[in-house]
């Protein structure tokens, strides 16, 4: 169980994390979702005691990370797969980590086996592909057989096979009764991986709920109706209790499915050119929810002409 209470981090005038409170339940995969720059990594670093919060606190099973004795036995984390000395072998990297927390040397070979790196254990970590580095990072997180696991964007830049492997792996860890907290900026990925979602934008909590609820709430199913004369149908739809809004020459109906609308159209003798269900995408829903909180907006609509395309500078 991870608990954040009023967690705040500011860099000068910039608030990276703003009074963030949430809890990560035991035995489930909890997704930590937010656009790039929302403060996910900063929050994870604060949970691990690497960054000091400006305010509030993060507790793991009721303790601050810095008060944990041999923390690898309680919390495993993969924040950045590149945090490895490139000239050190994968095995040596795991060996020093294991030794620092008095973990048995054979545990190193066990975790290498679990992530499938046994064959390259003696190779320089600097020569690893991103997928291999991620596996090495996961091996490091598993060293102490911890009950709590944190992963920051573990599928970033991985190929589909790697993504699938990590997704299954997270589920396995949660099935073993562990607390898994995994961040991502991709809702579609989280919808498949996580059972619970903590959604943040600009450092603020947007929602905490089960993934199912979040997706159902966020994606509203509608039907697009087009035709030359929709006046009668519109009235009938309104009487039948559906809500209708105009979109271009057509209508967007919610609260009624295609079959019912079709029958209603027949009854009102309306000619239809189109009757199609619209499924809101997860990405759209996510954009809607976090739309106001994306830090670096890209204004596609009024893109500058090439002549004015100069670096804006941050």
């Amino acid at each position: 169980m991870i608990e954040a209470v009023g967690l705040t981090k500011s860099y000068g005038k910039t608030l990276a994390v703003d009074n963030l409170s949430f809890s990560v339940p035991t035995g489930r995969v909890t997704g930590f979702l937010g656009p790039n720059g929302a403060g996910k990594s900063t929050t994870m670093r604060m949970i691990l005691g690497l960054d000091t919060p400006t305010g509030g606190s993060a507790l793991i099973d009721g303790k601050r990370y810095r008060d944990l004795h041999q923390p690898l036995r309680t919390v495993g984390a993969l924040l950045d797969a590149k945090w490895v000395h490139p000239n050190r072998s994968a095995r040596a990297h795991l060996q020093w980590l294991a030794r620092s927390n008095k973990l048995p040397a054979k545990r190193v070979d066990e975790v290498l086996e679990i992530v499938g790196l046994t064959a390259v254990a003696g190779k320089r970590a600097g020569g690893f592909s991103l997928g291999m580095s991620q596996r090495l990072g996961i091996a490091a997180a598993l060293l102490g057989d911890p009950q709590v696991l944190l992963f920051d964007e573990p599928v970033n830049g991985l190929d589909p096979e790697g993504i699938l492997w990590i997704r299954k792996f997270m589920h396995r860890l949660a099935e073993e009764g562990r607390t898994v907290f995994v961040s991502s900026h991709l809702l579609s990925e989280m919808a498949l991986t996580a059972q619970e979602l903590v959604v943040i934008g600009r450092g603020k909590l947007i929602s905490q709920s089960s993934t199912e609820d979040f997706v159902a709430q966020a994606t509203e199913n509608t039907v697009l109706v087009r035709g030359p004369q929709l006046g009668h149908l519109r009235t009938a739809l309104g009487q039948a209790g559906a809500s209708v809004r105009d979109e271009g020459a057509g209508l967007v109906v919610s609260g009624m499915d295609c079959a019912d609308i079709g029958e209603l159209a027949a009854r009102t003798q309306t000619v239809l050119h189109e009757l199609s269900p619209q499924r809101g995408s997860l990405e759209e829903a996510f954009m809607q929810l976090t739309g106001d909180s994306v830090e670096y907006h890209t204004e596609i609509a009024d893109a500058p002409t090439p002549a004015t395309l100069v670096p804006a500078g941050k």
């Binding site: 690497l50 990370y65 810095r66 945090w83 490139p86 490091a140």
Partner: peptide, 18 residues
């Protein structure tokens, strides 16, 4: 400084928070 350069200092402080 190489620990800061390669980020291993974070792993170090993560395994030894003191």
């Amino acid at each position: 400084t190489s620990e800061y350069r390669f980020g291993t200092i974070r792993s170090t402080f993560q395994v030894v928070p003191h």
